[in-house]
Design a binder for these strands. Structure first.
Lengths: 339, 339
DNA sequence: CAAGATGTAGCAAACGATTGCATGACCCAC
DNA sequence: GTGGGTCATGCAATCGTTTGCTACATCTTG
């Protein structure tokens, strides 16, 4: 099937391609006589003309698309983020290229490279172990980009993150209201701002409230996975620190904790309450239904996209960063402290 | 940052761009003198030259990319499929454009249109309500494409589907071994081959085994959702048909059934056993852990990608279709039939 | 009424590759 | 020694747009 080209439209309308190009482009439409423009537009419509994005991209080195870099689509956190981004970008004519890096830096670097070759106009990074040097180089070149769920101390890059610290406060407050005083923390890996922030907030909360906060009640897991959570919980139980509730760094760690508790025959929430973080899909269906801090993933993506659009719109404006509020979803994994 | 162009490489190597182009392209490398080619390649490497995919695409109307059309990325079925596709395609130099249609035909049509403009070389459709006319038009134009999880009677398009019929047999067999004789079916919407196939297989199984199969023991739900499953289960319970086990059309329907059973105070699997279909992530963590038929989603995607590569390789070869085997994952939602 | 401003449209050169065709060098055989 | 065959390379058109510049009317304005 042949698709109409600009030249054909121009010929049929009896004008030069350049004129047709201008008439068909809202930014330049003013340069051509109104009635001529109308005629050209009519012809274009009749012929079903749509500009060839590739030719346009070659000429303008723009592309109406952005690069989205995530660790792994099968991690349930990311699909809502991706949808949030797409739902904002698509209506304004942008497409998103997605690439999964599995947190491998070389993959990340080559993805960025490949995106650049394709003239993407901006980037959204939702990736975990961020290739620092690469990122700073990009920032220095003032490549439009937005970070999701992590921030960089060194560079002033717009980001959208969730207000983890308040989330932790919400969780602890809930536990305290249930009568818990001995609370433990299953922290995630500390090479990510997520893990660090939640852990720091945990410690601060204990301190402020005058709750016991010996070092032993924080165990740092070595991955954000169920297995790591199960191991961490084991370590916690065996450490001898007394506790009746545990705040996990995320839902996967909490699920791992579930496993260990079940294996040990410890009842949740009867003996030990568990709180997760993220509110992944189906956390209301697990057993016990998980009390967890809900992160607005879709909104995270949507806001990131809006931020990126702002940057693309006017690169001179100072980059904003957003902190999205969290809510605590109380379900069945938390209960009154055992006497 | 300036990126080297073919002309620059050619100049530096003292040859014409055409020669450089040939030397740098494995298919045409043979046309140029071996030592010249080596020199050009060396220079290209030194300058960090990589061909501009946009310019190449404009000229060749190829793009090294394919279009992937799915209903909704946040449906947990799809991420593994997407990864399967990407993991096969990327190593051979293809990228995948993803678009979510939310099952809207106009979105689907415009996605296809936009993909075509971008010179995608093939399509993978994992979408539910397939725009029939569009698809047949594409098939007629012998556009390379592969269907996942659905087939079209009218056109001979390669597809990869799961062997649902055998999956149903596995499930029923398991129930029969547990002593169940009165089995019901929570069928999914019948406008999709998935729903139809599973329902037909269910009926055939009952018949072959001489189990009771009045019409009333199949309830057709009006969506593939938890809510629809809950409503369907309600209808089933209120219909008066006796049953001790129910096979759900997919896991979401089964989860809905869980809800209804819980609301009615009916124990699962004590009084009624439930089997799901798909084995979505975390179905081992719900309560009770779900017995379900596992579909190899990742493999579905991977095989679809391989099929597409075959078609792209040699369009003349007759398109194959694949039927992937299913397995039953026995967990806690099925138990011996109540006496 | 001349000179400059303004409005409209065409020309042609890009953007960065690929590729059919022409060219010239060289070799071989008759 | 000439005709023809290979090999290697260059030439130039092309893919479909965009855009700086130029050119020509027409309109102002003093």
């Amino acid at each position: 099937m042949h698709r109409a080209t600009l030249r054909e439209v121009a010929d049929k309308a009896g004008v030069h391609p350049a004129t047709a190009s201008r008439a068909l482009n809202s930014a330049t439409e003013g340069m051509v006589n109104a009635t001529t423009a109308a005629r050209i537009q009519k012809v274009a419509k009749e012929m079903g003309y749509t500009p060839n994005p590739i030719a346009r991209s070659l000429k303008t080195s723009r592309s109406s698309s952005i690069g989205l870099i995530i660790p792994d689509l099968t991690n349930p956190l990311f699909p809502p983020i991706v949808r949030g981004i797409e739902d904002v970008l698509r209506p304004v004519g942008y497409n998103a290229w997605i690439v999964n890096t599995d947190n491998q830096q070389d993959v990340e670097a080559s993805a960025v490279e490949s995106f650049r070759q394709r003239n993407v106009e901006g980037f959204v990074f939702a990736t975990a172990h961020l290739h620092h040097a690469l990122l700073e180089e990009m920032a220095a070149a003032s490549t439009p980009m937005v970070l999701i769920n992590r921030r960089l101390a060194s560079a002033d890059i717009p980001s959208v993150t969730s207000d983890d610290s308040t989330g932790v406060t919400l969780a602890i407050q809930h536990l305290v209201e249930l009568g818990h005083r001995n609370i433990a923390h299953l922290a995630g890996p500390q090479d990510l701002s997520t893990g660090v922030t939640r852990r720091r907030a945990f410690r601060e909360n204990l301190e402020e409230r005058g709750l016991p906060d010996e070092a032993g009640r924080i165990v740092v897991c070595d991955a954000w996975s169920e297995e790591a959570g199960a191991r961490g919980m084991l370590q916690l139980l065996d450490s001898g620190v007394p506790f009746t509730a545990v705040l996990a760094g995320n839902d996967l760690l909490a699920l791992g904790a579930y496993d260990t508790l079940a294996a040990r025959g410890i009842s949740c929430p009867g003996e030990i309450s568990v709180i997760g973080f993220n509110d992944m899909p189906y956390m209301d269906k697990v057993y016990p239904p998980m009390t967890t801090v809900r992160i607005p993933h879709y909104e995270l993506g949507a806001e990131a996209a809006r931020l990126l659009l702002e940057v693309l719109d006017g690169p001179e404006r100072h980059p904003r960063s957003l902190l999205l509020p969290l809510t605590l979803v109380v379900r069945g994994s938390t209960g009154p402290a055992a006497a």
